[in-house]
Design a protein around this nucleic acid. Structure first.
Lengths: 228, 228
DNA sequence: GGTAAAGTACAACGGACATTGCAAGTTATA
DNA sequence: TATAACTTGCAATGTCCGTTGTACTTTACC
């Protein structure tokens, strides 16, 4: 149902799609437009223009029309961002190689900055997510669940694992609930930046963002640092 | 205690038609519909039906049409919620009467619970706010600023004052930035509940919400409790 | 170069919806 | 009761936009 329905028959006949990979261009442009305008306001014509593609081609690739396109964008974008987030997580807080105690704050801060950086790197995605939040009531529960599962929940689970590892090594004290510590960490490092930047509309100067991130990390460490 | 806020003209029971306080009914219904469906999806006919009013009457009261109505709803709703929030703040954390140290956690927890409770009492408002967040790019900057100023910023300022007062009395240590402590407090007590309840779509059981709120307050006190 | 898939241009349909004008009905007030 | 103010139902207008059919062109690959 949710699949594009065109990946089975192309295996034998077609090595790759037509000219350039139009499908990718469409999804990418749709991510921008949906993120900027939201589902209702976004126009197929606008997406087509932004993708450098004719309107008809969109319907050829996505027979389900606007809805199917939106669902594809949700999946594509959230997987992309999830991978980027997991990459940063493993880079700065690999559960396999916990940091030296003296480097804990430094590493957490690096992770937090990278995390916040992704918010501007994937501005379109997070704009889209805000629209999803606003329209939870208009998105089928199954679609919503699938998205949460492969996106936010997967990432949250990995971060939680990292927190648990830090706890295991006595670097922090999660007070019995690493998942909760994770949510608190995310909230502390990103809430104020999100608010102050008008949800990405007018980004903060780098140094100001850094200052707020650092304050969040310090607050987290005061709340969850091991008693030592 | 979600009052309708229209009992100033309490005569006798008004007849179903004619000269009731239509304007209020319209704005109230519009708040529901805009909150549920968002600006684009919301239909004037739907609002009219929900308000028990003819479509034409809406245009009589709001000659600017949908846009003016939306702006009126923003103002009305945010002022209403602001007043409710300030009332709770003064009730549990009056800057004039700082709590006894032994009662600090109890009072903060009471405030936090009341605060979270407002999110369900004014579900429509917060749904509307999510739509505003998602559509920052489509709302005139002046309207957005006026809203922030009389709503969130005003409340934030008062909470910040309360935090500063707690700091002055040595009950907490804001580390030189009461505004930051305020944002962190709000983030800690509400982030997880918001996420887990799908942004109000499927509310959490009371005891679960209480548990998360309490965890947030405890984390806040670990981060900002005075060293004494 | 030939063929088929992929893409494009264009026109048209149909529905949803904001908005307005108007005539008639209802209410409040003097 | 008279009158002005308010409300309503309804029809109509215009616009925007998702979607589809069709004929034509481009591209990829043999």
């Amino acid at each position: 149902m949710t699949g594009t329905g065109s990946e089975d028959k192309t295996r034998t006949v077609q090595p790759r799609r037509g000219r350039a990979d139009k499908a990718t261009a469409i999804v990418q442009a749709a991510c921008q437009v949906f993120g900027r305008d939201g589902y209702s306001r976004a126009g197929i014509d606008t997406i087509a223009a932004e993708a450098g593609v004719s309107t008809r081609t969109i319907y050829n690739h996505f027979p389900g029309g606007k809805e199917e396109l939106f669902r594809s964008v949700m999946r594509w974008s959230s997987e992309r961002v999830r991978d980027a987030q997991l990459a940063q997580l493993r880079r700065y807080l690999d559960p396999e190689r916990p940091p030296h105690p003296a480097n804990l704050e430094r590493d957490l801060l690096a992770l937090a900055r990278a995390w916040v950086g992704l918010m501007t790197d994937f501005r379109d995605h997070f704009a889209l997510v805000r629209h999803i939040y606003a329209e939870v009531g208009h998105i089928p529960a199954e679609v919503l669940d699938a998205w949460q599962e492969t996106g936010p929940r997967a990432v949250g689970g990995e971060v939680t694992a990292a927190m648990a590892a830090l706890d295991d090594h006595g670097l922090i004290d999660v007070h019995g609930d690493p998942a909760q510590a994770t949510v608190h960490f995310m909230a502390l490092i990103s809430t104020e930046i999100t608010q102050r930047s008008y949800w990405g509309l007018s980004p903060l100067p780098q140094e100001e963002a850094d200052r707020l991130t650092a304050a969040g990390v310090r607050a987290f460490l005061r709340a969850y640092g091991s008693a030592a």
